[in-house]
């Protein structure tokens, strides 16, 4: 029974992956590739947040800080090098290191405060970055509130090249994160979520595990922000905005926290919904307030189906 279930899911995943690899060779309008690119960037972003929230049980409202750092690192590097690949890679490495550094600092704060506090602290930090990014004094570096255009290397503009790059990074990241959460360290993170003080009394240094999970999640979020830049090609201060942090949270909750696949599903649903609803909104004025619907849906899911879509599917499957 269990074996057959696994076989079924393996088959489904292989088919989906194959479909995702093959379709751009047959049909690849620009809008679709761009939409798919946004979905993939957000999927990775949400996955990074799932590591933090779904596995380690840490609530942050500031994951966008890392997303923005990644985005600006690529944007600044691409302008400095005029789209040269070497500078771009250098920028990417710098962005990841910067994200790790911020993750380290936040991690130490995290180890000193209670659950809800940390959400506020991280929110405040991302708001500061937003202010800095839009500041007039830093305009030469960040472009102020107008933002910075991203110069994407030529070869990425050919056909679905960007799409395949994003796809590869996403799959690779998924594999890495999947191994992390199933490893002994991942078990400790889940244990921390379930019962922090007992984890400590078993001899695990909770402080170190918290710092570690925040750093790792931050680095993946930064990578996600970089991917996003390759798709939308402009970095604006809004990257640091609360709405992005909350999007990640929403995707994780809708798809199912602590499943790693859930956030991907959540990203598909949310990006599509935002895309569709905001375009319908221009003709049906009420729908421009679709955020209200989202908020209500979010509350309902948290209260009625806290395991999200994937978690609830699992539960249904277990009970059959």
């Amino acid at each position: 029974m269990k074996k057959r279930g696994r076989l079924f899911w393996t088959a489904v995943s292989v088919l989906v992956l194959a479909g995702l690899v093959v379709f751009p060779t047959m049909w690849a309008p620009v809008w679709l590739l761009s939409l798919a690119g946004q979905i993939m960037a957000f999927a990775l972003f949400a996955m990074s947040f799932d590591l933090l929230f779904g596995y380690a049980g840490v609530i942050s409202f500031g994951q966008a800080a890392f997303w923005g750092i990644g985005g600006y690192a690529v944007a600044i590097a691409s302008r400095a090098g005029g789209g040269a690949i070497a500078t771009l890679l250098l920028g990417a490495v710098a962005g990841i290191l910067l994200a790790a550094a911020l993750g380290l600092v936040e991690g130490f704060i995290l180890s000193r405060v209670k659950a809800g506090y940390f959400a506020m602290v991280t929110l405040a930090i991302s708001q500061i970055l937003l202010l800095l990014a839009s500041s007039q004094n830093l305009r030469p570096l960040t472009g102020g509130s107008d933002g910075l255009n991203v110069y994407v290397p030529r070869f990425l503009l050919v056909g679905p090249a960007t799409y395949y790059l994003l796809f590869a990074v996403l799959v690779l990241s998924f594999v890495v994160l999947y191994r992390f959460v199933r490893s002994p360290a991942g078990l400790v993170w889940r244990g921390m979520r379930e019962n922090e003080s007992r984890i400590e009394s078993l001899g695990y240094n909770v402080l170190a595990y918290k710092v570690a999970v925040n750093v790792v999640a931050g680095m993946f979020a930064a990578v996600a922000g970089m991917l996003y830049m390759l798709v939308i090609q402009i970095a604006t201060p809004e990257l640091f905005g609360l709405s992005n942090s909350l999007d990640a949270l929403l995707m994780v909750i809708i798809g199912g926290a602590g499943t790693l696949v859930g956030p991907v599903v959540g990203a598909v649903i949310l990006v599509l919904a935002e895309h569709e609803l905001s375009s319908i909104g221009s003709s049906v004025p009420f729908l421009s307030h679709w955020l209200i619907l989202f908020g209500l849906m979010f509350i309902l899911i948290v209260m009625a189906a806290p395991r999200g879509l994937m978690g609830t599917l699992d539960k249904i499957r277990d009970s059959i």
Partner: peptide, 25 residues
């Protein structure tokens, strides 16, 4: 205990701690 984890996982945590495997990723 760790209510969301299985019985085996609840035991795996202390054993892994004793064997110093907690940072294997």
């Amino acid at each position: 205990l760790f209510p969301g984890l299985s019985v085996a996982e609840n035991l795996r945590l202390p054993v892994a701690a004793r064997l110093g495997l907690g940072w294997r990723v």
